[in-house]
Amino acid sequence: MNEIKKTYKNYVGGKYLRSESGKTFRIALKSEFYEVPLTSRKDVRDAVVAAKKGFTEWQKLTPYNRTQVLYRLSEMLEGNIETYQQILEDSGLSKSKAKEDTKQALDSLIWYAGIADKWEQMTGNLNPVAGEYFNISHQESLGIVFTLNSDENSLNQLLLNILPSLVTGCSVISFNGDNSIMALKLAEDINNSDLPAGALNILSGKFDQIIDDVSNHVEINAMAIYKQLPSTDKKIIRENASKSLKRIFINPPVSGLESLLPFIETKTVWHPKGR
């Protein structure tokens, strides 16, 4: 029928925004077309501003609070689970596969929600230094993380690309290509959970159009690339990143404690013991 069903918007700083360029691109689901924003360099810069504010607010929450916010998101997701299943089916999955994927997605969200107030107990420790000192290594969030999400037709994979950095207290700019409908749909549930504005921002577009702007942006502290990229793109990213020693993670782990490790900085504090 080739009818344009719906125009999705980017989700930045807790608001739904069109690209400032006014440009969109088309994604076909089943026999219908959807228009999604074609994120511009200016949109990226605006997202960084939003993510900076979001980082401050997300950091203010206690780990216990972060667990509750993410659990709340799982409740929202569960309430709308059929919508996600429909998107998956419209994108080519069988009914049973779509159902299985959304079930796994919920499980992933529950797993990550529950680790927000625990991971630091697994990554930090006292150090038995030779001397009369209290010495502890604990972890802090890296800051603003840009994630290039996998294009896989999967809600579960989408969440596994977002949650590792988000759960460590980073603010996230999540960039999506072919999977944008799913991601922008997820933005609606994010908006209805209690995540602070700007902590998670969802953009859609063509990565090769913004690759330089993202990798050159000094206020993005890290990039996590969950998509398979040609080596030429990886080279561009790492060359640009070297100007400010941006942390680059190419295809990092997507499960377990190891998925969190890229997004933390270890801080070690010493203090003498004495009377």
């Binding site: 150090n127 038995p128 230094v129 030779a130 001397g131 000192y133 010495n135 290594s137 070690t268 010493w270």
Partner: peptide, 8 residues
């Protein structure tokens, strides 16, 4: 202060 057990 430095120690092999203390991350740097």
């Amino acid at each position: 202060k430095f120690d092999p057990s203390s991350p740097f």
